[in-house]
Amino acid sequence: MPSREDGSTSLLQAPPSQGKGPTAALPAFDIAIASKPASVSVARRVADAWIRCHCQMSADSVDDVLVVLCTNAVQHGRRESIDVRGWMPAPDRLRLEVHDKSPSPVPCPQHVGPEGESGRGLLLVDILIAGLGGDWGFSDDGTSA
């Protein structure tokens, strides 16, 4: 799985809107949630409402991706909160980021045997994102998906 593409821009690094043109007022959200299992459903509900309202698309597959990424951030991150961001870099594109702020080696999808009880999350993300025609990855320092 590749790291985040060169040339992509984090929401924090994005230039401010110039207030004109078709992309000037594209919607975005940015929330910080406690790094606790119960907070994953909060992130899912916020993203679901935002996607349904502003992106005019079904959020089902995107919800599944977000739940896996937030769950991984809660389980493997070493901070008290995680950041979840969503925005539309163009009218027909959706970008979600999950930041656990815990530098780590970049994880990759695993192929787990039928008896395994965990370890399928990133493989599921890979399949769902491919089905949506998108791409995904991690920052080079492993803090963001």
Rank of each mutant, 00 (worst) to 15 (best):
S10K: 10
G113V: 05
P37F: 07
A25G: 10
S39H: 06
A25C: 06
H99E: 13
L132C: 10
K20W: 15
A130F: 01
P114K: 14
R79E: 14
A145E: 07
R44K: 09
V68Y: 08
G7C: 07
A47G: 05
C55R: 02
P103K: 05
L26C: 02
D141G: 01
E117W: 05
A34S: 15
D63H: 14
C70W: 10
S41D: 09
A73S: 05
V65D: 00
A28L: 05
T143L: 01
C53V: 01
M88L: 15
H111E: 12
S10W: 12
P15N: 11
A28V: 01
A73R: 05
D135I: 02
V40D: 01
P103R: 05
P107F: 12
G133E: 06
S3Q: 06
Q110M: 14
Q18S: 13
D140P: 02
D83M: 06
I31N: 08
G134L: 01
A73V: 03
A25K: 14
A38D: 09
A47V: 00
L128M: 08
Q110Y: 12
Q110D: 15
G133N: 09
D30L: 11
G131P: 01
P22S: 13
A38E: 14
R44Q: 07
M88R: 15
P16S: 14
P114C: 05
V106Q: 06
A25F: 13
L12C: 08
P2N: 12
R120K: 12
I129R: 03
S104T: 14
G137D: 07
Q13T: 12
A24L: 12
P22L: 12
V62M: 02
D135F: 12
K20D: 12
V40P: 00
R4V: 13
E80R: 15
D126L: 10
G21Q: 03
V42H: 09
V67S: 07
S39P: 08
K20I: 15
G116W: 00
S144A: 09
A59N: 02
D140E: 01
V46R: 05
P109C: 13
P22A: 10
S139R: 04
G116C: 04
L12T: 14
L128D: 02
I31P: 02
T143D: 00
S41P: 10
E115A: 12
A47T: 00
L124H: 11
S10T: 06
A59V: 00
A32Y: 14
D64A: 13
D6W: 09
R52T: 03
L12M: 14
C108H: 15
D100Q: 08
A38H: 09
G134T: 04
C55Q: 04
A49W: 00
